[in-house]
Simulated assay, not measured.
Amino acid sequence: MKRGETIGIVGESGSGKSTIARCVSRLVEVSDGRILLGNLDIAAMPQRELRQHRRRVQIVFQDPYRSLNPRRTVGESIIEGPMYFGMSRDEAVRRASQLMKMVRLDPDALSRYPHEFSGGQRQRICIARALAMEPEVLIADEAVSALDVSVQKQVLELLEDIRERLDLSMLFITHDLRVAAKLCDRVAVMKGGKVVEHGTAFDVLSRPQHEYTQALLAAAPGHAMAGAVEVTNESDA
């Protein structure tokens, strides 16, 4: 993955997509192999070094309703990580206000609780919380699949805007090929824990070589998929 690039990992449920996300973020132990971030092998990193790694790689989960502590204001959730790493409370709150603007929410809402927000707004707050750590890599693990289609579009546009503004690398995990086509530079297709096809989003989704990728595309809504690939192609050109 290059800096500023979005790689999509697609495949059916159980194919291993979320396991990769949890390995990269070291939420689970890696049994074999390597995961390189720069010159660092994340897979071999001892526990004592993981604290700093948490800052470099942040993850946004699928369910915005379970990702925030209902007993804490959204402001407290956003400033917790930076303060843990030594940022003063005043600076953390100032940063949280800036991030709320970045995710297109009112900074005055920092004093409110999660139940006062819609699903789409909660996911924006989760994105702000992840960005508060100033990560190099942002992992979005099915981050829009629990949202209504219209809200999905808004959050996807937000993620794309943030990636460009902050020059972030993003690992985008999804089972929705239309979403991958619109957002990702490159796509890896997983089946049974293995990558069976990998390439630019346009090549993989318009000229699939593996029979599994062809089956996934055949199962996707035809007109919508064609439109998504067309958009990706125009943006690449």
Rank of each mutant, 00 (worst) to 15 (best):
K191H: 14
Y65D: 14
S18Y: 08
M1T: 13
S67P: 10
V28T: 15
A143I: 10
V231S: 02
G120A: 08
S118A: 12
M102T: 14
R207Y: 02
Q123C: 11
G14F: 05
F172R: 04
R207P: 03
D148F: 02
A226Q: 14
I78N: 06
I173M: 09
R129G: 08
Q123I: 08
K101G: 11
C126R: 02
C126V: 13
L177C: 11
E164Q: 13
S169Q: 12
S88P: 00
L158Y: 12
G4H: 09
V187C: 04
D176K: 05
L147K: 04
A228K: 03
I162G: 09
T6K: 03
D203V: 00
H175I: 02
V204G: 02
M190V: 07
G192K: 05
E91T: 01
L27H: 04
P135F: 05
A43S: 14
L166R: 13
V93P: 05
A92C: 04
A201S: 15
D106K: 06
D141W: 05
S206L: 01
D167M: 07
A143W: 06
R94G: 15
H210I: 02
T6P: 03
H115L: 08
H53P: 04
L27I: 12
V137E: 08
Y84E: 13
R34A: 15
P221A: 07
Y65N: 14
D90G: 00
E230K: 07
L36N: 11
D32S: 15
A201T: 14
I139K: 01
V144A: 09
V24S: 10
G120Y: 04
A188P: 05
R186I: 03
R165P: 02
V93M: 13
A130G: 06
S77A: 15
A43N: 13
G120H: 03
G86T: 06
R54Q: 14
K191D: 11
V151L: 05
V137C: 09
A215G: 01
G120E: 07
K153Q: 14
E211F: 00
V137F: 05
G8M: 06
Q154W: 02
G193P: 12
G33K: 12
Y212H: 07
E49P: 00
L131I: 05
R163H: 09
I20S: 05
A218T: 11
Y65I: 06
R54W: 06
D161M: 11
L147V: 10
R56H: 14
D185V: 01
D90S: 09
M83R: 12
V93T: 11
Y212N: 04
E134I: 00
V149D: 06
I42Y: 11
G193Q: 12
A181V: 07
A226E: 15
E116Y: 01
L158W: 11
D106C: 11
T19F: 07
G4T: 08
R124P: 08
S13F: 06
